[in-house]
Computed example of a mutant assay.
Amino acid sequence: MRELLMVYLCGVILLLAVSTTIDGEEKVGFDHILIAAFGWPIFTPILALKVWNSR
């Protein structure tokens, strides 16, 4: 369980760090960044399953 939490927190930190490079001209709001940072563990397996089933 500790490893899973570490991977999750590293992913959140990485996405938030990358989000600092987004300019204001790109019209990406902070709410979208937070959804991406905290929602990736949920959406990644769903997308992987969709890709796997469409093969």
Rank of each mutant, 00 (worst) to 15 (best):
M1E: 08
M1G: 11
E3M: 05
E3W: 05
L5G: 06
L5W: 05
L5V: 12
L5T: 08
M6D: 13
M6Y: 06
M6E: 15
V7F: 01
V7Y: 03
Y8G: 08
Y8S: 07
L9R: 04
G11I: 00
V12A: 02
V12T: 04
I13S: 09
L14V: 04
L14P: 01
L14T: 06
L15V: 06
L15C: 02
L15W: 04
L15Y: 06
L15H: 02
L15T: 02
A17R: 03
A17M: 07
V18I: 11
V18N: 05
V18A: 09
S19N: 04
S19T: 04
T20Y: 07
T20D: 03
T20I: 11
I22S: 00
D23Y: 04
G24M: 11
E25Y: 06
E25N: 13
E25V: 09
E25L: 10
E26Q: 14
E26T: 13
K27L: 08
K27A: 12
V28D: 09
V28M: 14
V28W: 07
V28G: 06
G29H: 13
G29R: 12
F30H: 06
F30M: 10
H32F: 09
H32Y: 08
I33L: 07
I33R: 02
I33N: 03
L34W: 03
L34H: 00
L34I: 03
I35C: 05
A36M: 06
A36N: 06
A36W: 04
A36F: 03
A37V: 01
A37G: 03
F38P: 00
F38N: 03
F38C: 05
G39D: 02
G39Q: 03
W40L: 02
W40F: 08
P41S: 05
P45R: 06
P45Y: 05
I46E: 07
I46K: 13
L47K: 08
L47M: 11
L47F: 14
A48L: 15
A48W: 14
A48K: 12
A48D: 15
L49P: 02
L49G: 03
K50L: 15
V51G: 06
V51A: 14
W52C: 10
W52I: 07
N53D: 15
S54L: 15
S54G: 14
S54Q: 15
S54M: 15
R55Y: 13
